[in-house]
Nucleic acid binder design. Structure first.
Length: 861
RNA sequence: GCCGGGAUGGCGGAACUGGUAGACGCACCGGACUCAAAAUCCGGCGGUGGCGACAUCGUGAGGGUUCGAUUCCCUCUCCCGGCACCA
């Protein structure tokens, strides 16, 4: 056996071996339990980043673990290959997005292979390939037929200089990122998917997802945002049509002191005619951003329209305002304002001197305090005429009945969730398969003409969609009348691509159907793993898309992902210098030396190249802008894939953020060397004898118990808790025990042989290359990746005595050793006899004796 | 602003169902080996007091429940993720 641990050689050997054996190619085998382990596929940005390495290492550990547990495991991989960065790269370097994307895929695929992930590469999916996205188009046409897809206008960010639609991330402080021009809101026709038709189902089914983190279910529940309320019509003076509003607080109706409508609302538009001030204000509302965060954080402003609504209960005249925080897209584009019981309305009323009229009092009968803020809790009605004295539920019912009887209002369920706008005015995406004909209008592309292929040779220049300038793409015949027509140039949101790729892995290569019977074998995904940043949108869209496929008879599956693991982000330190004048410069932590005092505490940091100090910017996500990324490739070349994988899994539990640490990587590498050395030392003394459990001495029995205790712990940590860091810590502890054990007798060596075999087996999912080699060195002719996970020996786990800690009044005062399974009375006697325990009891009688069997006793005096 | 999450030694983290706070690793300190260094091995390592046995304080801040709270409840601070065209 090689004495030195040489990862480059070991890893290449192992990978060659798996490749030659076709170890990770899988087929559908109904005789074995299946396990579909899926990691979120990467966007091919150029190189893998540490987040990918973390994600795919978690997936690979589970894949290899479940394989050892006897499952038929599928771990596929693919590319989320459409998207904005390819267009940005095209603009920067003049390369077509297609070439850039395919080159990146080639490089990143090599990186993934070098990390030793057990991927079924024969099922690879690339979303920018026509053989993939034709099925986006095909399903879109089915949705159009069923009315799930429809056309209406939507608001986008418009850069007036570049004459182009901007993504939210391309709008910086309200200005276009390239032109610096003030961005305008613009309404354009777009295609939407009726995800709101599925809102109730998507909400209810969250309850059937016990394998999802509670926080993700909560976030989705809040995102869907079901609310029950009343839709109420207010008469408007001098207008034929009433003003409809939706409220979840009908009990506060008599507290309405003004109404607010969106800038785009017909009432506001009409009032603005001939009123320049109002026109200016409405134009200003058009200029704010379109994101919810921007709308919620901006200053709440408004202007009276000079018209009045009639309160449906009191008959009072109520002024109607236009306000920048009311959105035409939400509900009816108008709200009733109750400043006494809604904080936002309260602030608005204070600002503009509007009346604040309390109509709800706390249940204790006190008067609501509306001086410092709104009273927003439920309570009892006052100042509400014949509704006085009612509580929330009663008031809700009473008002509902009142309006239903009059036909001027009704109960309504409202959703925060909005329909999914899938149109993008961009080139590098899946073409929406529609044709515009001057005589026949919008026509779907017939199925036999699919796919509508995206030309791969265009280069965007930032001024609009290049598809709109490509005659060869645009020109087509109308499928209905045969006359000249033009193709739709909008492409689909890339969330469409990622909403069903997990079905396609299981139906790879089928050019006649979107999914086939292989999907019925593999779906649903047993374990999905990806970043927490996808907790809402991607996961919700996938759940929706799966339901549409179910309704079209394409699958029986309703929920695509049975278990979900959301991994935390990978962080690193941030170092920078900010000269008195000039731009801030970030330095890569690899180029910075940290200075510590003699206790190891940090006292400063200097740039290695010039020895001058740099400032610490704390810890942040690895990013280009902060220049704090670590290249996985350099890591693998220096330490090997196993060390990289071991560090990633050891440094933090998977759901938490992970802080990068070069020293931590060194530590992981040292452990690999120690492991290698321990096996080398053991093996170089010749083969071990068979283990005779009955012949072991005390020290050997203790080591053997530690081996089996570790096995139990690692099995639950990997298999149930998914806390790989504690599993690895337990194995490190065992390795320390093995290294301290120096019994070279035949039975001593037999115990060590069993211990080392166990270590190699349980570490195989984490550091598969080294373990692959070590398994052979330990005398096996089998291939480790096909071995079964070991079973603990119950008899090895038995203990004769246990240590019980003894507290007096909850404070630790002593320890007693008692026979395992001893009665409480035995423990009590031993505990009370302990001198230190007696000292702290100060001769007082025992008031209470709490005993946690085998662990702890608390004497209360 | 709203929704979700987090905060434990010098650092990353552990404590699984309310029961020994600090496992494991890193950094640091001391020692062995070495002409020396690196590597490796051994030992120490939350603060304070004590020669020591041990005591005492200590899990972001403040309060509460409990025999017992890092864990449960309330209030607050800071950090991170998402907010519908980044993926």
């Amino acid at each position: 056996m090689q004495e030195r641990y040489e990862p480059a050689v070991i890893e290449a050997d192992a990978q060659r071996d798996w490749e030659a054996r076709g170890t990770f190619r899988v087929s559908e085998d109904p005789s074995r339990p299946k396990y579909y382990c899926l990691c979120m596929f990467p966007y091919p940005s150029g190189r893998l980043h540490m987040g990918h390495v973390r994600n795919y290492t978690i997936g690979d550990v589970l894949t290899r673990y479940m394989r050892m547990q006897g499952h038929n495991v599928l771990q596929p991989m693919g590319w989320d290959a459409f998207g904005l960065p390819a267009e940005n790269a095209a603009m920067a370097h003049g390369v077509p997005p297609a070439k850039w994307t395919y080159d990146n895929i080639d490089y990143m695929k090599r990186q993934l292979k070098s990390l030793g992930f057990g991927i079924a590469w024969d099922r690879e999916v690339t979303t920018c390939r026509p053989e993939y996205y034709r099925w986006n188009q095909w399903l879109f046409l089915r949705m159009l037929e069923k009315g799930i897809a429809y056309r209406r206008t939507g608001v986008v960010n418009w850069d007036p200089v570049d004459q182009t639609v901007l993504a939210n991330e391309q709008v910086i402080d309200g200005r276009g990122w390239r032109t610096g021009a003030l961005v305008e809101k613009r309404e354009i026709p777009m295609y939407y998917l009726r995800i709101t038709d599925y809102a109730q189902d998507l909400l209810d089914a969250l309850g059937s997802l016990p394998g999802w983190p509670e926080r993700v279910r909560l976030m989705q529940e809040n995102w869907i945002g079901r609310s029950e309320g009343l839709e109420i019509e207010f008469e408007v003076e001098g207008a034929a049509e009433p003003l409809a509003i939706y409220t979840t607080r009908p009990d506060t109706l008599c507290g309405v002191t003004y109404m607010a409508v969106a800038a785009e609302h017909p009432l506001a538009q009409r009032a603005a005619v001939g009123n320049p001030d109002l026109q200016a204000f409405i134009a200003e509302c058009q200029r704010s951003g379109v994101t919810e965060a921007a709308l919620e954080t901006m200053e709440k402003r408004g202007m009276p329209l000079g018209i009045h609504a009639i309160h449906p209960i009191t008959g009072e005249r109520v002024p109607v305002w236009v306000a920048n925080f009311v959105l035409m897209g939400y509900g009816t584009g108008a709200v009733m304002a109750v400043p006494a019981h809604d904080q936002r309305d309260w602030e608005f009323a204070r600002r503009y001197g509007l009346r604040i009229h309390p109509v709800v009092q706390p249940l204790d009968g006190s008067l609501p305090d509306i001086e410092s803020g709104a009273f927003t809790e439920h309570g009892r009605l006052i100042n509400s005429g014949r509704f006085d004295g009612l509580e929330f539920d009663e008031a809700f019912d009473a008002y509902a009945k009142f309006f239903e009887a009059q036909g001027t209002g009704k109960r309504r369920v409202n959703w925060r969730l909005r329909d999914w706008g899938i149109s993008r005015q961009r080139y590098w995406g899946c073409p929406i398969p529609l044709i515009h004909c001057a005589t026949c209008g919008v026509q779907p592309v017939p199925d036999d003409q699919l796919p509508v292929v995206l030309p791969e040779d265009l280069v965007p220049d930032g001024s609009g969609n290049p598809l709109g300038k490509s005659e060869s793409f645009l020109k087509c015949a109308c499928p209905k009348c045969g006359g000249p027509a033009r193709r739709e140039t909008d492409t689909m949101d890339t969330f469409v691509d990622s909403s069903w790729y997990f079905f396609r892995y299981a139906s790879a290569g089928n050019d006649r159907a979107m999914v086939d019977e292989r999907a019925a074998y593999w779906l649903p995904v047993d374990q999905y793993i990806g970043g927490i940043e996808h907790a809402i949108l991607h996961l919700l869209y996938s759940r929706f898309w799966t339901r549409v496929m179910r309704d079209l008879g394409l699958t029986q599956v309703e929920e695509p992902f049975t278990n979900l693991l959301t991994q935390g982000m990978v962080l690193n330190e941030v170092f920078f210098r900010k000269p008195a004048s000039g731009r801030i410069t970030y330095y890569n932590p690899a180029d910075v030396d940290v200075q510590v005092d003699d206790k190891g505490a940090r006292i400063g940091a200097v740039l290695r190249s010039d020895g001058e100090p740099v400032e610490s910017g704390g810890i942040g996500t690895m990013s280009k802008s902060k220049n704090n990324g670590v290249d996985p490739q350099a890591l693998v070349e220096r330490y090997g894939a196993d060390t990289a994988r071991l560090f990633m899994m050891f440094a933090a539990p998977p759901e938490q953020t992970l802080e990068w640490s070069d020293e931590g990587v060194d530590g992981a590498f040292r452990f690999m060397k120690r492991l290698w050395k321990a096996v080398h030392q053991h093996v170089s003394a010749g083969p071990a004898q068979a283990l005779d459990v009955a012949a072991l001495d005390e020290a050997s029995r203790t080591l053997r118990r530690q081996v089996h205790e570790t096995l139990v712990k690692v099995t639950t940590d990997i298999g149930k808790r998914r806390t790989f860091n504690t599993a690895i810590a337990a194995v490190m502890e065992l390795m320390n025990a093995i290294n301290r054990f120096d019994d070279r007798s035949p039975q001593g060596r037999a115990v060590v042989q069993e211990a080392l075999e166990t270590v190699v087996l349980v570490l195989a999912p984490v550091v598969p290359h080294a373990c692959h080699a070590l398994w052979r060195e330990l005398g096996h002719t089998t291939v480790l990746v096909d071995e079964r996970w070991p079973e603990p020996d119950a008899r090895a786990l038995e203990r004769a005595t246990v240590e019980v800690v003894v507290q007096v009044n909850g404070k630790l005062r002593g320890r007693v050793t008692v026979p395992a399974g001893a009665d409480e009375s035995v423990v009590r006697e031993a505990a009370l006899a302990d001198p230190n325990v007696q000292r702290f009891m100060e001769g007082k009688p025992v008031r209470k004796f709490v005993y946690v069997p085998g662990k702890l006793a608390n004497v209360v005096v």
